[in-house]
Simulated scan of single mutants.
Amino acid sequence: MVFTRYSGIFTPAELTLLQTVFDTLCKERRLALKDKDQRDDLAREVIQRFESGYSNEDDLLQSLSKRRRTNVQSSAANP
Results as ranks from 00 to 15, higher is better:
residue 8 G to M: 15
residue 20 T to Q: 09
residue 36 K to T: 13
residue 71 N to F: 13
residue 56 N to S: 06
residue 16 T to Y: 15
residue 41 D to P: 06
residue 78 N to G: 01
residue 59 D to H: 11
residue 25 L to M: 02
residue 25 L to G: 00
residue 71 N to Q: 15
residue 73 Q to G: 02
residue 66 K to T: 13
residue 51 E to F: 00
residue 53 G to N: 04
residue 25 L to K: 00
residue 19 Q to K: 11
residue 2 V to R: 13
residue 78 N to Y: 07
residue 48 Q to F: 06
residue 78 N to T: 07
residue 37 D to T: 07
residue 74 S to I: 04
residue 4 T to R: 15
residue 19 Q to Y: 08
residue 30 R to D: 08
residue 40 D to V: 10
residue 78 N to L: 05
residue 69 R to T: 01
residue 55 S to T: 12
residue 28 E to H: 04
residue 43 A to M: 14
residue 61 L to F: 06
residue 79 P to T: 07
residue 60 L to F: 03
residue 20 T to K: 10
residue 67 R to Q: 12
residue 39 R to V: 04
residue 14 E to I: 10
residue 44 R to L: 13
residue 35 D to E: 08
residue 23 D to G: 10
residue 10 F to L: 11
residue 65 S to A: 07
residue 53 G to C: 03
residue 76 A to D: 11
residue 73 Q to N: 06
residue 38 Q to H: 00
residue 56 N to R: 06
residue 10 F to A: 08
residue 26 C to M: 08
residue 53 G to V: 04
residue 5 R to K: 15
residue 51 E to Q: 09
residue 78 N to Q: 03
residue 9 I to N: 14
residue 64 L to N: 01
residue 54 Y to E: 06
residue 4 T to G: 14
residue 13 A to Y: 06
residue 18 L to R: 07
residue 70 T to V: 01
residue 77 A to L: 09
residue 32 A to P: 00
residue 75 S to K: 10
residue 59 D to Q: 14
residue 17 L to N: 03
residue 19 Q to L: 06
residue 35 D to L: 03
residue 53 G to E: 04
residue 40 D to F: 11
residue 50 F to S: 08
residue 49 R to L: 12
residue 6 Y to T: 09
residue 1 M to F: 14
residue 63 S to A: 15
residue 50 F to W: 11
residue 38 Q to Y: 00
residue 38 Q to N: 02
residue 30 R to G: 04
residue 68 R to K: 11
residue 46 V to G: 02
residue 57 E to K: 14
residue 68 R to P: 00
residue 4 T to C: 14
